[in-house]
Amino acid sequence: MAVTIKDVADRAGVSPSTVSRVIHNNPKISEETKLIVNKAMEDLKYHPNAVARSLANSSTQTIGLILPNSSDDLFTRPFFIEAMRGISIYAQNQNYNLMYCFSNSEEEEVEFIRNYINSGWVDGIVLFTARKDDKCISYLQRREFPFVVIGEPENGDEILWVDNDNVQSMYNVTSYLVEKGFRRIGLITGPDQFAVTRNRREGYRQALISRKIDIVESLIKTGDSFSEETGYQCMKELLSLKNPPEAIAAADDYLAFGAMKAMDESGKQLPIIGFNNSPRADFLTPSLSSVDINPVLLGENAVQLLIKSLQNKVLPFKNVIVGTRLIERESTSSY
């Protein structure tokens, strides 16, 4: 028998009208009551409006997108715009609409997901990143709600996800620099909580080990964000070393942009490669070599997996690896 709003009310010890107000995020309901009611809905696996939709033999035809960026950053980061373009193209062809939100923290993302599910506004959710001990993924799994991740999650065997082979991509970048004659290669990455950081760092390490080059921990800088400011500070630290690096691999173009600023100020230009092939990379002096990770295809494949699962189509695989390629520009071609 289907779970009803009255079942949730009984479980939470409140009235059905209070449950309804929690579902619609009424500001008059206390945080304590919201927690109790949300816990009851999770325990009972109650999805508001699910019964009504099944009776009507229809769905919302809407996908929710959870963007891990503030409103200020969202439209300055080409990766998210391009991934959303890929999602939009496929979703529109399948007659699906999109609803998106952006956030300042992982906790805020979970709250948005809870509201999406409880309101019955969306049929499934796209996450744009994978973290260590990911709270969004854990919450969606507890609620047994359809979702896909752009990024390789931990324990992802039963999760739909799409990503690049980030280990291999950074392995290729590091090998490229080694083949140009560099042995002391600095690495600048973003926060360690993100799978992309850990995987690209592993690719860097594997490339050095395979060529019997010592890994020097002081040449590896893990920043607290993927911002230009982080890249700038990390590069200043690398340049201040008694034995500084000969070349730089940056795990994101914005880290590379900041690193190039620090190099300009120091008067020392080192070969450097970024990731994401941002449009701005072409207009710098020198122009920045960068790895094209094909974000349009990442987005398209992600939403394709999700929509096919919503349509109960047989999926021959639960994850997709999208290829990358190095775009060589002046920051490495002249060495």
Rank of each mutant, 00 (worst) to 15 (best):
S15A: 14
S17E: 12
T18I: 13
T18W: 02
T18N: 11
V19T: 03
V22W: 03
I23E: 01
I23F: 02
I23R: 03
H24I: 13
N25S: 12
P27R: 11
P27E: 14
K28S: 13
S30A: 14
S30G: 05
S30I: 06
E31N: 15
E31F: 06
E31G: 13
T33L: 15
T33V: 13
K34R: 15
L35Q: 14
L35A: 09
N38S: 13
M41T: 01
M41F: 07
M41L: 15
D43H: 02
L44M: 11
K45G: 07
H47V: 12
P48C: 12
P48D: 04
S54D: 10
A56R: 15
S58H: 09
S58W: 05
S59R: 06
S59A: 11
T60I: 05
T60G: 02
T60E: 02
Q61E: 08
T62Y: 08
I63T: 05
I66W: 01
P68G: 02
P68I: 00
P68A: 04
N69G: 09
D72P: 02
L74C: 08
L74E: 13
L74V: 14
L74D: 00
F75N: 12
T76H: 15
R77W: 03
R77L: 12
R77N: 15
P78V: 06
A83Q: 03
M84G: 01
G86L: 00
G86K: 01
I87M: 06
I87H: 01
I89D: 11
I89V: 11
Y90M: 03
A91M: 02
Q92M: 09
Y96W: 13
L98A: 03
M99G: 01
Y100W: 11
C101I: 10
F102I: 08
S103N: 14
S103P: 04
S103C: 11
N104D: 09
E106L: 07
E106K: 14
E107Q: 12
E107L: 12
E108D: 08
E108I: 13
E109A: 01
V110C: 11
V110G: 09
E111Q: 14
F112Y: 15
N115L: 07
I117Y: 09
S119M: 09
G120N: 04
G120D: 05
G124N: 00
G124R: 00
T129H: 07
R131V: 06
R131F: 10
D133S: 06
D134M: 07
K135C: 12
C136W: 06
C136K: 07
I137Q: 02
I137P: 02
S138D: 15
S138M: 14
S138P: 03
Y139S: 12
Y139A: 10
Y139W: 14
L140N: 01
L140V: 06
Q141R: 08
Q141F: 10
R142C: 13
E144R: 15
E144D: 11
P146W: 05
F147C: 01
V148D: 03
V148P: 00
V148N: 00
V149D: 02
G151E: 04
G151D: 03
E152P: 01
E152Y: 03
E152C: 11
P153F: 00
E154L: 15
E154D: 15
N155F: 07
G156S: 15
D157W: 05
